[in-house]
């Protein structure tokens, strides 16, 4: 067989097709991201913008306990969001994967549908539910469980619930995709052979779903960690995350290099996390 695709003319033709687009992406994706990361070693100009002395001052500034606390806080909130999503997302995906084909499609569409709604509207919806006069407080008061409204809004818990709401479909879909491929006979067989429900879950479903669980964890963790809108709207500014620091340094303090430092820290955390994910999922695949 002649490998026409590998021929020289074909390769030249390929470059001719792709280069305008690749140049566009170089100018407006690669260079911006790289230069932004480089900016963290520069110094803020007097009236905004950046100037030279190249040094690592911004990194020592970032180790101030106030900022370290924000970074740890962000990691905790993003982890809590991902764990909560996993705890309710895994059983849901498991349930859906065991339905008939038709119901699988219906439920998956039902789970994706809210995700396509404007994310500010979805965040705002929690203001409606959680405020002191909101539906949840009214309901609890009507059934006589409380007589004074519970302050639910503007707490870290509100931020975690809001972000779980925003990103839950990103947890359910990859787990469902992994489970859906699992041979149903496998769990049936385990059951017939006297394995308990918990044991077949632990020895069959969870290991097989592991690649999906890892991807889902990343999909939820990544947008949560860099989020500044939800902490602001549902956390009422009391919950500060890395995203808020970046936003404030860029738009309020006008210290771009310092803002870029936090963005770099954010990017580094994500790179580490994704490396762990690909390492673990390779090992899981080998074992499976």
């Amino acid at each position: 067989m002649v490998k026409s695709g590998g021929s020289k003319t074909s390769r030249h033709l390929g470059w001719a097709w792709a280069s305008p687009g690749l140049i566009f992406l170089t100018l407006f994706a690669a260079i911006p991201v790289l230069s932004m990361l480089f900016m963290s070693v520069l110094t803020a100009g007097r009236f905004g913008g950046v100037t030279t002395p190249i040094n690592f001052d911004n990194f020592s500034r970032a180790t101030d306990p106030i900022f370290v606390k924000v970074i740890i806080n962000s990691l905790l909130i993003a982890s809590a969001t991902a764990i909560l999503s996993l705890l309710i997302g895994f059983p849901t995906a498991l349930f859906i994967s065991r339905l008939s084909r038709k119901w699988q499609v219906i439920l998956i569409v039902a789970i994706i549908l809210p995700y396509w709604t404007n994310f500010l509207v979805r965040t705002y919806a929690w203001l409606v539910l959680l405020n002191n006069e909101g539906i949840i407080n009214k309901f609890l008061r009507n059934i006589g469980l409380i007589d004074k409204p519970i302050e639910m809004l503007y707490t870290p818990a509100a931020v975690i619930v809001g972000m779980t709401y925003l990103y839950l479909p990103l947890m359910i879909l990859p787990i469902y995709a992994a489970l859906e491929k699992v041979d149903k006979n496998l769990t049936e067989a385990a059951f017939d052979l006297g394995s308990s429900a918990w044991k077949s879950l632990r020895t069959i479903s969870i290991p097989l779903a592991m690649p999906g669980i890892l991807i889902g964890f990343i999909f939820v963790f990544v947008p949560s960690l860099g989020n500044f809108v939800v902490p602001e709207l549902l956390g009422g500014g009391k919950t500060v995350m890395i995203g808020n620091l970046v936003r404030d340094q860029f738009l309020k303090a006008r210290d771009w290099p310092f803002g870029a430092t936090f963005a770099l820290i954010l990017a580094l955390i994500l790179v580490v996390l994704i490396s762990i994910q690909s390492y673990v999922s390779k090992r899981v695949n080998v074992n499976a």
């Binding site: 992406l25 260079i31 230069s35 947008p223 960690l225």
Partner: peptide, 22 residues
């Protein structure tokens, strides 16, 4: 390279572009 912008955190891309435009 061509699909990476879909994965880069939006905040990182946003301030990178803001810097570049400036």
């Amino acid at each position: 390279f061509s699909t990476a912008p879909a994965i880069v955190p939006d905040l990182v891309l946003a301030i990178g572009l803001l810097t570049t435009f400036s």
